[in-house]
Lab assay of single mutants.
Amino acid sequence: PKDQAKKEIEKALRNGDEEKAKRLAKKYGISDDDWKELKKRVS
């Protein structure tokens, strides 16, 4: 599910692991808009 994916990506971003977050986003098909939203929430 997308919500689970977003949680994992957000966690990776919080850990400062943007490479992992990007890989997860690609793997789960997270859209650019969702990606920006996640980045905003974390920063």
Rank of each mutant, 00 (worst) to 15 (best):
I30S: 01
E19R: 11
I9E: 00
A25T: 02
R41Q: 12
K40T: 10
N15D: 15
G16S: 03
K40R: 15
A21E: 00
I9Y: 01
G29K: 10
N15W: 07
P1R: 11
K6R: 12
A25E: 00
K7L: 14
L24N: 01
R23Y: 14
A25S: 04
A21Y: 01
K20G: 13
W35P: 00
K22R: 14
L13I: 04
D3W: 13
L38I: 15
G29F: 05
A25Y: 04
L38F: 04
L38W: 03
E19D: 11
K27P: 01
V42A: 10
K22E: 07
D33Q: 10
K11M: 15
D17K: 05
R23V: 09
K6I: 15
E8M: 12
E18R: 04
I30P: 00
E8L: 12
S43N: 13
R14L: 08
K27F: 14
D34G: 03
D3A: 13
K26Y: 08
D32I: 07
R41I: 13
R41M: 14
P1Q: 13
L13H: 00
E18P: 05
D3K: 08
Y28M: 04
D33R: 07
R23N: 09
R14K: 07
D34Y: 04
K39I: 14
K39W: 06
W35Y: 15
W35R: 01
N15I: 09
S31M: 03
K39S: 04
R41H: 09
E18F: 11
G16L: 04
E8H: 06
I30Y: 06
W35E: 01
E19M: 10
K27Y: 14
E37Y: 06
A5K: 07
A5Q: 14
R14T: 04
D32C: 14
G29W: 03
K26R: 13
R41V: 10
E19A: 12
D33L: 07
N15F: 07
D32E: 12
S43R: 10
L13N: 00
D33K: 08
D32F: 12
S31Q: 04
V42N: 05
E10H: 04
D17Y: 11
E19I: 10
D17I: 02
K2N: 15
K26E: 08
I9L: 03
K20L: 15
Y28T: 02
E37D: 06
L24D: 01
P1N: 13
K36T: 11
K26D: 08
I9N: 00
A5M: 10
L24M: 05
D3H: 11
S31I: 03
V42G: 03
G29S: 07
E8P: 01
E37G: 04
K6D: 04
N15Y: 07
D34Q: 07
A25Q: 05
K26A: 10
K27H: 09
R14W: 06
A21N: 00
K20T: 13
K40I: 09
D17E: 10
D33E: 14
L24F: 03
E10D: 03
A21T: 01
